[in-house]
Every structure is written in C-alpha cells, then in structure tokens.
Simulated assay, not measured.
Amino acid sequence: MRVRMAIQLAAENEKMSDFERLTTIYWALSGALHYRVPGAVVELGCNAGLTSVWLAQIIQDLDPARELHLFDSFEGLPAPGELDTYLDKGDCSAARSEVEANFATWKLPQPRIHPGWFDRTLPESCPPQIAFAYLDGDFYDSIMTSLENVYPRLAPGGVILVDDYCDLDANPRAWNGLPGVKKACDTYFGVGSPLLEVVGGTGDLSFAAIRKPLGDE
C-alpha cells in the first residue's frame, strides 16, 4: 500500500476520507483485484475525486486494465428525504473539472465519468459486471438507487463498501450523522442480513462491507 500517498490524500480530504477510510478501501479493493474478481470498479458519489484518485492508484498498481467508473450529479446532494439529516440540498458540490484536475495532478489515467443524478445515469451507464463498488451517496434514496443498480451487477466474490453506514450496537464509535444510509441498506437486504458486515476502526469509521457469495448470480 502507498502509505505516503494515503497520508497526503487524507490530509487534503480529511472531512470525507481520512486515513482509516482509505486504508479500509485499499484492503477491500486490493482483495477483489488480487483474487481476480471480474468486472469494473465504480464509485457512486465521487465529489472532487480525491478518493477516486486512491481507487485509480490501487488499480494501476494491481490490475491496470480495469475500468474505473465515477458517478456524481456535480450539482451537490439532492433534497433530503424524511430519513435524511445533517446535510442539505446542494451540499458536497464539486465540478467535473476538479476530478479531472486531481487525476492530472497525480498523473493517473482519466476515469470514465458519468455526470447526472443516479436514477438517470445508473440504469444505462452502470457497467454490466462489477468487482468493487464504493457507495457514498449520503441519503436514503441515493443509496437505495445505488444498491438496486449495483448489487445485481456485482460479480460473485465482489465487494461493496457503503460509507456512512452506522450500526451503533455493532460499532459504538461510528459516526451516526446520516441514518438514511443504514435504513436503505437494511431495507434492501433485510435487517440483520448476514451480507451486511459492519467495519470498525479506531476512529469514527462508519462502513458496511457487502460481499456477494461465490456461486450467486
């Protein structure tokens, strides 16, 4: 793992992807690539692309032929629903040009970028097979739409990491600012589903890992 790069990216993007989050992403994605799980790598909710840069570097180091697809409205968040808190419409806005500039700064190949709301872009542009997905949609509807489009395309053995999934019973240190994320996952998979694995850390890491069982289609 490129530790120095992770430290630098975390310093530039501390509020969204600290070092612990980047480390977790590394181990999840590198495992999928190491075991040759077929399919593309996708990120849903890429913002300015600093976490995307980390994904791209892992791909370049381990399997540079893999495609990286990024999805973002580039208009900030949609209006929150009844289950959404903390953030509001238009928050977390970034421009596509920021993503492209960050990839150029780190001298990485430009990813395939899909601008627009998830419910419009994912049905047509989501890769047919996915090895790894990072879901960072923040709100209930965004995560639900992400799961509906990504999980059926996830290859057996593939992994989804869901940011902001907080289960305080399993991980009392987790940040619980976006409860709609957990509600969407629990609604899609069922409360207490064995597919939802809480990931803990020394800080306020709030992640769920979803692994598609081998043999599932």
Rank of each mutant, 00 (worst) to 15 (best):
D163K: 02
F207N: 07
Q110M: 12
E14I: 09
G49V: 03
R96V: 13
R66W: 06
L147P: 14
L87Q: 11
R211H: 13
P152K: 03
L83Y: 02
T145G: 03
A208G: 09
I59T: 07
G215V: 06
G76H: 06
N47F: 15
V37L: 02
L77G: 12
Y165G: 01
T105E: 13
L195I: 10
R2C: 05
E67I: 13
R66A: 04
S97D: 15
L214S: 08
D141S: 05
V162A: 10
T23R: 07
V191D: 03
C166L: 02
S193V: 10
A209Q: 15
I130R: 05
G180N: 02
V199L: 08
Q110K: 12
T85M: 04
E12P: 14
T85S: 10
A65F: 09
P194M: 01
A95E: 15
E100W: 03
T23D: 14
V37M: 08
D163L: 04
D119Q: 12
M16F: 08
A208T: 07
D163S: 04
I58L: 11
H114D: 03
V191H: 09
N47R: 13
K89G: 05
L87K: 05
V198E: 02
P123S: 09
V150F: 13
D164N: 14
L168S: 13
R36H: 12
E14D: 14
P109L: 06
A209I: 08
